[in-house]
Amino acid sequence: MTGAAAAIAALVDRRLTVAVAESLTGGLLVAELIGVPGASAAVLGGVVAYNTELKATVLGVDAYLLAEHGPVHPEVARQMADRVRSVLAVGGVPADIGLSTTGVAGPDPQGGQQPGVVFIGIAFGSTVTALRLDLSGDRQAIRTGVVSESLARLNEMLNEMLTGA
C-alpha cells in the first residue's frame, strides 16, 4: 500500500479530514492524496501558496514572520498547517488535520536557505509541529522527497493515534 493509500485508509477509518497547504510541492502532495480512490471522504482540499505574499493573505501566516525570516522557516510551516484547516473549512467545520510544505527545491538558494531545506508542518487539535528535512538531489527529487516524507509523517501520526503511543 502506498503512503497516500495508507493515509487515506487511516483517515477514513478514524473519520478524520485533512487540508493541505503547499509551497514548493506545488500541489503534488494533495494530488497524491486525491489520487487514491475514496479520498473524497477525508481530503477537503489544498491551497498552493507558492508566492510568499499568499502565505499571509490566503493562509493567514504572520506577515512580520515572513518579512523577518522568509517563507522557509519552521514557524511558517506550523502556521500554514494550522491555518489551512480553517481556510478550507466545509460548512463551517475545519479540517481535523492540517499538513503543509515550505522550502527550497532549487536550483538556487532562497532567503538564505540552500536547496533541499524544507519544513513540513502538521496540525492536529492543539498540537502543531514542524519537521526540518535536509534533502539532496535535483528540483524534482527534492519535491518528490517532500511528498514522500510528508505522507510518512502523516502516517506516523495516524498510527500513533491508533496505538496510543
Rank of each mutant, 00 (worst) to 15 (best):
T2M: 12
G3E: 01
A4R: 07
A6K: 08
A9Q: 13
A10S: 15
A10K: 14
L11Y: 14
D13F: 02
R14M: 11
L16N: 08
A19Q: 05
A19T: 11
A21G: 12
T25R: 09
T25W: 07
G27V: 08
G27W: 14
I34C: 14
I34P: 03
G35C: 04
V36R: 13
G38S: 06
G38Q: 03
A42S: 14
A42D: 06
V43Y: 03
V47K: 13
V47A: 15
Y50R: 15
T52L: 12
K55P: 14
L59Y: 03
L59Q: 00
L59I: 04
G60S: 07
V61I: 08
A63D: 08
A63Y: 03
Y64V: 07
L65V: 09
L66T: 06
A67Q: 15
E68G: 01
H69N: 11
G70H: 05
G70Q: 11
P71S: 15
P74H: 10
P74M: 06
P74G: 05
E75G: 12
V76Q: 04
V76G: 03
Q79Y: 09
M80L: 13
R83E: 13
V84Q: 02
V87D: 12
L88M: 09
L88N: 14
A89R: 09
P94D: 11
A95Y: 00
I97Q: 12
I97F: 10
G98M: 13
L99A: 08
T101Y: 00
T101C: 01
V104L: 03
V104M: 07
G106Q: 02
G106D: 09
P107F: 02
P109Y: 05
Q110G: 01
G111L: 02
G111S: 11
G112D: 06
G116H: 10
V117H: 04
V117P: 00
G121I: 13
F124Q: 13
F124K: 09
F124P: 01
T129A: 13
T129I: 15
A130S: 15
L131C: 13
R132G: 11
R132V: 06
L135A: 06
G137R: 12
Q140D: 14
R143V: 15
T144L: 12
G145N: 10
G145V: 09
V146F: 08
V147D: 12
S150Q: 11
R153H: 10
R153W: 07
L154A: 07
L154K: 04
N155A: 09
N155K: 07
L158W: 01
M161T: 02
L162P: 00
G164I: 02
A165R: 09
